[in-house]
Design a protein around this nucleic acid. Sequence first.
DNA 1: TGAAAGATGAATGGTCAG
DNA 2: CTGACCATTCATCTTTCA
Length: 591
Amino acid sequence: MDWNSDDDDENTSWDTEEEQEERRRVDGPASIGGPSRSVYEAGTSRPGLVCHFLGMGFPEEIVLRAVRKHGEDTDAILDTLIKYADNEKSPSEHENSPNHCSLASETESLDENFSDMDDFVYEELTEDISEKDKIVSTLVDMGFLAEEASAAIDRCGLDASLLELADSIEAAQMAEEFDDHQWYPKPSSVEDEGYAYRSRKEKRKRTSEMERCKKRSRLYNGRKESTRRGTMSIDDDDVPSLSLPNPMVGFGLPFERARVTERKLPDAAIGPPYFYYENVALAPKGAWDTISRFLYDIEPEFVDSKFFSAAARKRGYVHNLPIVNRFPLLPIPPKTIQEAFPATKYYWPKWDARTQLNCLQTCVASAQTTERIRKALSNCGEPPPHQIQEYVLTQCRKWNLIWVGRHKVATLEPDEFESLLGFPKNHTRGGGINRTDRYKSLGNSFQIDTVAFHLSVLKDRYPNGMNVLSLFSGIGGAEVALHRLGIRLNTVVAVEISEVNRNIVRSWWEQTKQTGNLIDFTDIEELSGDQLEHLISTYGRFDLIIGGSPCNNLTGSNRHTRDGLGGKQSSLFYDYFRILDLVKCIMGKNS
DNA sequence: TGAAAGATGAATGGTCAG
DNA sequence: CTGACCATTCATCTTTCA
């Protein structure tokens, strides 16, 4: 896999001084001036040099000219190439778009203008303009902006295929989108619970970290070799290419022949570490296209938990796990309301045809709602008039009400939520959490049986246990799923903003007599490369990075701020990606 | 002051008749 | 293929009450 290969690590010269300083801090004293410089100095053959710089993404003709001029003086070649690349971007682009293809990234240290550039570059570039215009025209016909097309040609060279150019444009768009969402002020107020960045310095630090990873995972290798869905599926938020499967069964269900038995993951997606990302399936248009693009172009696996339990839960999962030889958790949970709650059978009216519940959400109906239903049914004969039936059924479906007496419906209790979701009884009970927050935490959680089915392939692969980085860990759905699979948890680093949720996981950890380490972090935005490096050096490499980022701004239930991935909470998806890519960088470097 | 209750639609996708 | 109709949705904000 090339993202962690040796020649992936010598690219520090891309970085500005600030980035290099950051890298030195992350790398620690042992690696100061180490691998990066030595690789450059070791590259003594010219073809090797050319390949080396081509691999960084510079246009071939520029590389050839630079090598011709400077021989084997790698520093001089690189300096020239950086100047070239830097001057290809306008000052405004430098400031506003730390694009991973911008090559020179953080710009303060390189402020020479075009007139300072080596003359040969400027003169010889002009020869190619007419040819370039033709290609630009073709790309414009394909629906790209001329400006984007021009920039892509400059990055990839005139010899690049249209597919490569389209790929490059898409990568640039993605980085820009990322920048829009992540590195500039999110739509938040001053007292927004810490979602906004704390300081300019911190922002620069994060940008610096991110810049490195974007370069690695996008420009250097991943993109061009990624398995795309063809040239006509150039993703555009207006034209989402991902559609939800019907039935929503993912790659296959337990006890049936797998619908998908093998899949080709893009090189950049292949672990270690394994990762598993979750969010609501019914997100605004384009959201899953963006998620998939960021997560190495992996096709999401959309699964409705109604095939695993008595309640629906339509979710999308992006992961790089194997998909053969999955097995379900035992015992197999009931899949109908009547099996899950046998006592309801006696009172269940024939005209209520429900056999399964809708999605368990974060709120339940009020007592007034169930009382209104009781009164409505009590005041009419048997069976009730059609209108009454429709009213009652609508309310029952909306609020997931079950029949607990004659004319009497009720909300699900928190422990019934726990049971339906696959958690142990009383998992969220006690420890200072109130009823409202129990519903909220449970409504935001994994369905254990569904997730465990996907994770089951890890059991044989990790007979000695796993190190897990659990992001947005909530009430510990990932940990419970792995534990129920019988996978030993050696070290779990859990990142969760809510104190009561952290306490729930801590309590479960102690109750189940876990022998590994449980390490808490509060704020994913505060989790830095330094800390990850320290964790990995202390506890070993992460085997699995798992988490579902907030759905608040994606779910249809949200009437107020369904803002998509740019929303205040849901934009934390980009932190999931940031952490994932950082861990891949660190683990790749240490391998 | 904290917990619970009550009011608040729209976006999205599926189905089906024409 | 298109449009009408229908069902579903990891929620938020304000008010009420103990």
